[in-house]
Amino acid sequence: EPKTDISLPHKLLQAKEIKERKKILRENHQNAEVEGAAWLQTVLIPLEEARAEWEKTSGPFHKQRVAEHCGIFRALFKGATFTPWVTQRLECSQEDKHPVLVCCGNMVTVSEVPPAVSYEADKGFLWTWLLTNPGKRMDIERSKVFVFRTNSPGNAIESGKEICCYSPPFPAVGTGCHCFIFLLLQPDCPVDFSKGVWQTPCHSLKMGTFSTFDFSRKREAAVTPAGLACFQCQWGSSIT
């Protein structure tokens, strides 16, 4: 049975662009100099350029498959799927070490410092950003929210309204790895929490139970998921 696609509208690669990419690939395969460098392991690849190209082309589809495999769509949207067209860049600081980049399910240790977030988004839209954890059973009705910010204009996330202030993840001892999900949403109009059940800003973990499905489908404004990143985390000695 085909799943409901709730992705943002997006322009896919045209046949001409695909043909050009295949032409470059074919030329590289026929290039003796490139082949020799590959055999000698001396070929240099501009990783930043390669990643930027991947994020614009194949990356969103790869992230979608990872999320499907991990049960994220089932937990957050009752099985409806989407392609994360908007790229998020998230770095978690860990004491004196280099920042750890949040990718697609990589392991990240617990940190007291909130992640540094950036994304490329249209300035003409408002955006909602949250960090949630459906728990070990990936429960759709009992996700915990660890940060929630709404009505951010363009990529100015700090200009949005803070609904739930940041709380570091705290997976319980002996429960293994937990999946923490960064979700970027695009509402059709400003999100109003004045009549909600949450006291804003919300500092209570007990009040932080949240249903992404209800938020995106049962409010007056339609909310479309646009970006996705996730990491795994387990109990560590820093959790007290």
Rank of each mutant, 00 (worst) to 15 (best):
3 K>F: 01
3 K>V: 04
4 T>L: 14
4 T>Y: 07
4 T>K: 14
5 D>P: 07
6 I>Y: 03
8 L>R: 05
8 L>Q: 10
10 H>N: 10
15 A>Q: 13
16 K>S: 12
16 K>P: 05
19 K>M: 10
25 L>S: 10
26 R>K: 13
27 E>G: 06
31 N>K: 01
31 N>Q: 00
32 A>K: 08
36 G>P: 02
37 A>Y: 03
37 A>T: 06
40 L>P: 02
40 L>C: 14
42 T>D: 06
44 L>Y: 06
46 P>L: 11
46 P>A: 12
49 E>G: 15
50 A>W: 01
51 R>K: 13
53 E>V: 08
54 W>Q: 03
55 E>R: 12
58 S>K: 07
59 G>S: 02
62 H>S: 08
62 H>F: 11
64 Q>N: 01
65 R>N: 08
66 V>Y: 02
68 E>P: 01
68 E>M: 07
69 H>A: 07
71 G>V: 04
71 G>Q: 09
72 I>D: 03
78 K>Y: 11
79 G>Q: 11
89 R>Q: 13
89 R>T: 14
90 L>P: 01
90 L>M: 11
97 K>P: 00
99 P>I: 08
100 V>H: 06
101 L>T: 10
102 V>F: 03
103 C>H: 08
105 G>D: 06
108 V>H: 03
110 V>W: 00
111 S>D: 04
112 E>D: 13
114 P>M: 14
114 P>K: 07
118 S>W: 02
118 S>A: 11
120 E>S: 13
123 K>H: 11
123 K>Y: 09
124 G>P: 07
127 W>P: 05
127 W>T: 00
129 W>K: 06
129 W>D: 02
130 L>I: 10
133 N>F: 06
136 K>P: 00
136 K>F: 10
138 M>Q: 11
138 M>Y: 05
142 R>K: 15
143 S>D: 04
144 K>P: 03
147 V>K: 05
148 F>L: 11
153 P>D: 08
154 G>E: 03
155 N>C: 09
157 I>T: 06
165 C>A: 15
166 Y>H: 08
166 Y>E: 03
169 P>G: 10
176 G>L: 11
178 H>L: 10
181 I>H: 02
184 L>R: 00
184 L>K: 01
185 L>A: 00
186 Q>F: 07
186 Q>Y: 06
187 P>Y: 08
190 P>T: 07
191 V>G: 07
192 D>Y: 02
195 K>G: 12
196 G>L: 05
199 Q>T: 15
201 P>A: 13
201 P>E: 07
202 C>T: 00
203 H>I: 12
203 H>P: 05
206 K>P: 06
206 K>Q: 14
208 G>A: 15
209 T>F: 12
209 T>N: 12
209 T>Y: 08
211 S>L: 02
215 F>M: 10
217 R>C: 11
220 E>Y: 09
222 A>V: 12
224 T>V: 15
235 W>H: 15
235 W>A: 03
238 S>I: 15
239 I>M: 09
239 I>G: 07
240 T>C: 09
